[in-house]
């Protein structure tokens, strides 16, 4: 699972562009991640200019 720090996120959509699964959507002024279609490649986490995305603890277990 990817978690979004909404206090950091600048809803720029860079994560959307690198998601091979099309699991992220930029909706006006926020992003949504569809956990079902996420393939856990973490491209979005690495590309985020502000570090607003993280692999959440839940999936690390």
């Amino acid at each position: 699972m990817i978690s979004i720090n909404r206090y950091k996120c600048g809803y720029c959509g860079t994560c959307v562009a690198v998601c091979p699964a099309g699991a992220i959507e930029l909706v006006g002024a926020w992003i949504e991640i569809d956990g079902e279609s996420c393939v856990e490649c973490n491209n979005c986490v690495k590309i985020c200019p502000i570090g607003a995305l993280e692999v959440s603890d839940e999936s690390k277990k």
């Binding site: 959509g13 860079t14 959307v16 562009a17 690198v18 099309g22 930029l26 491209n43 590309i47 200019p49």
Partner: peptide, 26 residues
């Protein structure tokens, strides 16, 4: 629809960018 484009993908065009083909900016 910009860098976060979905229109192409919905039509079956793969517009996903590899990390080596996108600059992350601030």
């Amino acid at each position: 629809d910009g860098v976060e484009s979905k229109v192409g993908r919905w039509a079956g065009i793969n517009t996903t960018l590899k990390p080596k083909d996108i600059e992350s900016g601030a």
